[in-house]
């Protein structure tokens, strides 16, 4: 049970061959210079960009194999994504943002609310559950975004520089929290980062681009 990505990722004029493998329950760090395609890898795995060739196979399911015309839509992949530019929904407050994925999956309002609040407190964000993204600081937004990804209990967790704006104390907390959640849920976590201490702290494998 694992994630295997071997092929050419593609976005606009950018193209490059990548090999990424990850096992369940581990955190894999993706490092590389600006423009080396780290975010494109995240988008490709999430299903927001398609491979030019090669294959993306997750837990034995072919998510994206151009040669066989196999494709799984992003909404069916069940990834949890924290985007580099965060992308909270501006018209929803923090807890509504976290609830969004659950509600889309058909979870009842009250259950979704309960789970969203739980997850928000896990990332220490319950204090501003009712504020809109516009009124939050960059670090606070990243916490909400992290909760929004974690609340789905995703099989694949994709984190694109998720801690770039959080303060140091929370950063340390997250470095504890993340491996624990990944271990507990047996998820596959891929994290793009520039921070070498992150890599050494939690990554069990490093992919250089």
């Amino acid at each position: 049970m694992s994630l295997e990505l071997h092929g050419t990722v593609h976005r606009g004029d950018f193209q490059r061959h990548v090999d990424v493998t990850a096992d369940n329950g581990e955190v894999v760090a993706i490092v590389g210079a600006n423009g080396s395609g780290k975010s494109t890898v995240i988008h490709t795995i999430a299903g927001l960009a398609a491979l030019a060739d090669g294959s993306l196979i997750v837990n034995d399911t072919p998510w994206d194999v151009p040669a066989n015309n196999q494709w799984v839509s992003p909404e069916q992949r069940g990834c949890g994504v924290v985007f580099q530019d965060v992308r909270l929904f501006p018209h929803l407050n923090a807890v509504q943002n976290v609830m969004f994925g659950l509600r889309s999956g058909g979870v009842k309002r009250n259950d979704a609310l309960e789970r969203a609040m739980e997850t928000l407190s896990e990332v220490d964000a319950h204090a501003f559950a009712l504020r809109t993204p516009a009124s939050l600081s960059g670090g606070e937004r990243q916490r909400v975004a992290l909760a929004r990804a974690l609340v789905m209990k995703p099989r694949v967790l994709l984190l694109d520089e998720p801690f770039s704006a959080v303060d140091e104390r929370s950063h340390a907390d997250f470095l504890q929290l993340l491996p624990r959640i990944v271990r507990e849920t047996g998820a596959i976590a891929l994290m793009v980062t520039h921070d070498h201490s992150d890599v050494s702290a939690i990554a069990s494998r490093v992919v250089g681009l």
Binding site: H43, A46, G47, L48, S73, P74, E75, Q76, G78, C79, G80, V81, F83, R87, F89, F100, G101, S104, G105, R148, M152
Partner: peptide, 10 residues
């Protein structure tokens, strides 16, 4: 924004 929504399973 649309991408974020799709990625969340919507």
């Amino acid at each position: 924004l649309r991408d974020a929504s799709y990625a969340l399973g919507a």
